[in-house]
Computed example of a mutant assay.
Amino acid sequence: MNEIREYIRYDSLNLVSYIIYSEDGVSISQGIGRTLNMSQGGILLEIEGLLDEDIKNISMTIAIDENVINVDGRVAFTLITTAGFTEYGIQFMETDIKTIEIIECFINSSLYETPKKPRLLRKKDSRIDSFNLTIVKEHEIILEYIDSYRKLVENIDNSNLIMKIENLMTFLKKDLVSHFFFEENAVFKAALYGYHIDEATHDIINKFKNDHTILMTKLDEILSFLRIIKNEDKKEGEDSLIRKIFVFLGHTKKHCREESEILTSLINYDWEKMRYLNSLLE
């Protein structure tokens, strides 16, 4: 599909609270999503599930760095993706000067940053020229969730906090599944490619695979507890779960840093491994 846009869109990962209103102004549903990209004219919004087919207008609260903006938009297009997620192209309707300034400030700062893909799924046409830059960028995307979670918990307005945390953890799971699949089906195979691979290298790759299993199991447990607390509207156990998530994210951060350091040393300057890695992505 060819699209003509007035503005260039920049990759972004920002939480969005949205409310759907009927034509007569009655609130009929609400939820949490995230932006995949953003421009002065709109966003690409990703949510779990589907909005009602007849919905056209949407009211959104978007967290951009330390700022929060409120903006109305209309649904321009819909794209159903994998694993029960849907992407919506949202065109802003009317925006005030302050909102425009915040968005433009975010976009201007993005011009001086290395672009990051908001999703970690590696496509067949991917090619890696610098393994170090690639693995660090992917881990940075995962680690952004730690900062997003901290801001979410520390926010003075913590209405629907458990629902927001559940949505954030659901998106984290989606990205971790893609990231771990990429590592286990390409990166780890490349690390073990070639002659004279010692036992210590096999051990470290097995450790990383085991870490993946443990992290996914812990994340599934967290999501289960979040849904129980949300569905039963329980307050007891909420503080304990919030602390447990911080611990889980700390373990995830430690794992990412270990992988970045060790996998880079195994692959980055070995051109045979790099060639093999890229062959797995063709």
Rank of each mutant, 00 (worst) to 15 (best):
V153W: 01
T170M: 07
I146E: 12
K123M: 12
L168F: 01
Y149S: 01
N155P: 01
K164M: 11
I128G: 11
T170R: 05
F171V: 01
E154T: 05
N160W: 06
R122D: 13
E138L: 07
I128W: 03
S148V: 08
R127N: 14
N132T: 10
Y145L: 03
M163W: 12
R127L: 11
T134Y: 11
Y145W: 00
D129N: 15
I141N: 09
K123L: 11
K151N: 05
R127G: 04
M163L: 11
M163E: 14
V136I: 13
L133S: 14
D157E: 10
L152G: 08
I141M: 15
L133K: 06
N132Y: 09
K123P: 01
F131Y: 07
L161R: 14
S130M: 03
I156R: 12
I165S: 13
N155A: 06
D125S: 11
I141Q: 10
S126T: 04
K123T: 07
S159N: 13
V136T: 13
K151W: 06
Y149M: 03
V153L: 06
F171G: 02
T134V: 05
M169D: 02
L152C: 08
D147N: 07
R122A: 11
I156M: 10
L133Y: 14
I146G: 12
D125E: 08
R150D: 08
N132F: 12
N167E: 03
L143F: 01
S159T: 04
N160Q: 13
E166R: 15
M169H: 00
L152H: 09
